[in-house]
Design a protein around this nucleic acid. Structure first.
Lengths: 357, 357
DNA sequence: CTGAAAGCGCTAACAT
DNA sequence: ATGTTAGCGCTTTCAG
């Protein structure tokens, strides 16, 4: 009973059990056509030698790896890492494995090597979780990038014949600003993300449209751009106070920037929400514990990820089954508003302590 | 020139170029023994048909996948996701791929299926990035878990014959409390993480030891446990004020809990750092923008990850090369203290605005 | 019900 | 310098 140094393979099992490798294969795959006797014996041997089939070899022959590739950038930021977390759970749940590629820049356009690395490992599909920034989608026009491998995008402008799953950032912006108007604020400024980002543009457009529809003139001085970081938020809010002194509320494009906006406003001795209302975006767990607790637009990254993975698997199944290909479609999920203290000018009973999630 | 529906493989290239697959293989692997003429022609064909070798097939034959498995839990938390971010970068840089497995609970002990999933995909090594919690290391005594595959652990108690890379949490606790003493605080409370966590215990021990060495009696009422979340931090600090009213400083075991501690203290009308000093742990990017900006212990996750990946690759190389196996060792990296406003009682010039990173 | 042969895409070892 | 043979670990025909 030669015990190989590496690990037991199907041949070892076959020879120990005194059957052919084929029979072992049948047992492993729970095929019906094996005599109960034989099945039992083979199973015992498998147990005994600790045999586990090689998914690698299986993938090679079946041309199906049950592995999804995920491409992501900026894992050190909260947004991307939340997205990945959701994807990892959803993929795990679907019984797939996940091959992770992190790219160094959001606006990389040299995506060729990434595709190759993933394809050469025979992933069944690729989830492109890099946000749409600048020209980082231009490669999609290259018909070079083979479309044979199912592709699902997160967080980008929906378009024909491409599967995109994203929250509706435009609607999120609308929710935030509508709420501020309802609370009686009229001079509503905006701190945006970098406008190369699709998400930033959408959120800003929501702000602008709601104000315009309310008959409020929107000027450039009512707005400043940050780069998503708390540091940039502090600068932006200072700039805004300069440019737009009559401002009585701010819609900030993410919670990190809103955090420092709160700090700067506090420092100025202004009261939130009495003097200035603030609404953020993302609903990071800490936002309930900012000072005061932050009203914010909630996006459910888990749900987005789950939907994306489900779509992906549908596409894979249908393309493998030789069935009619799934109709590729864009899915826009709705965000919701979490109202906390930083914007509640009208209610008298406030949950100042935060805590509300 | 039959174009296969799937994608060009080595045979296609060989037949188009009129050579054997072997020659193609030689060209692809940049072997010297190919005639310049032939090499050129083969390269052209490769380009033309868009051939890329299958890493899967290569892995199968060479028993080397250039893929590392990473096992992690709680990706939705900042700590684990920062760790993964570092690992992903370091792995990418080393030219390896990353197979990600997220497990649902920190204290899972059924790690068998995880190992199998990873092994069956022939990963060259596994980075175990799940923090040590409760009994979740007990499987290490099981000799069942084959030790044939190189294993590197993050964030656990160093031990013999195991490679562990972690920051020195105990030292971190010491740094924090020593600093508070230097700033003249004497009644220093502690909000710990859940004590099932090794990290939490280490940080707490640092607190206790420094106080004891300074001749200060440490009682149980000077301490309360949280669960790392901001919500739990709020509860813990309330409890602490009840139990330990004379408290003049708090060392909080992570920044999220420190955030809500700051909030609760602010609400009570106490001044930070005058009445109460606060020091956190982790140095999350937002901590510079808390109110007031938070003094905290900085752990460099990127460095930890980089060291871990380097160790891993050393182990792999040495075990493959048939060389003497690398001596397995534990590596404890040193954290540092980032001093901001929440603890600076003595300095008169303060950078109240945060911003200092 | 079971086994033999062929082959997934590639490379190592031996020819020539 | 190039081709042939064998085989990584497994599954899919196709025969019995």
């Amino acid at each position: 009973m030669r015990q190989k140094t590496v690990r037991a393979n199907i041949k070892d099992v076959a020879s120990v059990a005194g059957v052919s490798t084929q029979t072992v294969s049948r047992v492993v795959n729970e095929r019906p056509d094996v005599a109960p006797e034989t099945r039992k014996r083979v199973k015992e041997v498998i147990e005994q030698v600790g045999y586990r089939p090689s998914e690698l070899a299986r993938s090679l022959i079946s041309q199906r790896s049950y592995t999804l590739g995920v491409v992501i950038a900026g894992l050190k930021y909260i947004g991307p890492s939340a997205a990945l977390s959701g994807i990892a759970s959803a993929v795990e749940e679907a019984g797939y494995s996940l091959l992770l590629k992190e790219i160094p820049h959001f606006d990389t356009n040299s995506i060729e090597p990434i595709f190759q690395a993933l394809r050469s490992r025979h992933v069944d599909g690729i989830i492109w979780a890099v946000s749409e920034v600048g020209e980082n989608r231009s490669w999609m026009k290259d018909s070079q990038i083979d479309s044979e491998i199912p592709l699902v995008f997160l967080t980008m402008e929906p378009q024909k014949n491409v599967t995109v799953v994203s929250i509706n950032n435009y609607l999120g912006g609308r929710l935030a600003v509508t709420h501020l108007l309802e609370q009686g604020y009229r001079q509503i400024g905006h701190i945006s993300g970098p406008l190369e980002w699709w998400e930033a543009r959408q959120r800003m457009k929501g702000w602008k449209d709601v104000l315009t529809e309310a008959g409020i003139l929107v000027e450039d001085r009512q707005w400043a751009a940050g780069n998503w970081s708390s540091a940039s938020g502090a600068l932006a809010v200072e700039k805004l106070f300069d440019q737009y002194p009559e401002m009585d509320a701010i819609f900030v494009a993410n919670d990190q920037m809103a955090l420092s906006a709160l700090q700067v406003i506090n420092q100025k001795g202004l009261k939130i929400p009495e003097d200035i209302g603030v609404v953020g975006f993302d609903n990071i767990p800490e936002s309930a514990f900012f000072w005061p607790s932050l009203t914010t637009v909630k996006q459910d990254q888990y749900h987005v990820a789950k939907v994306a993975v489900e779509e992906m698997i549908k596409i894979i199944e249908s393309s493998r089954g030789g069935l009619v290909p799934v109709q590729l479609k864009s899915i826009l999920l709705e965000p919701s508003l979490v109202v906390r203290c930083s914007s509640m000018r009208f209610e008298t009973i406030k949950n100042k302590g935060g805590g509300q999630l």
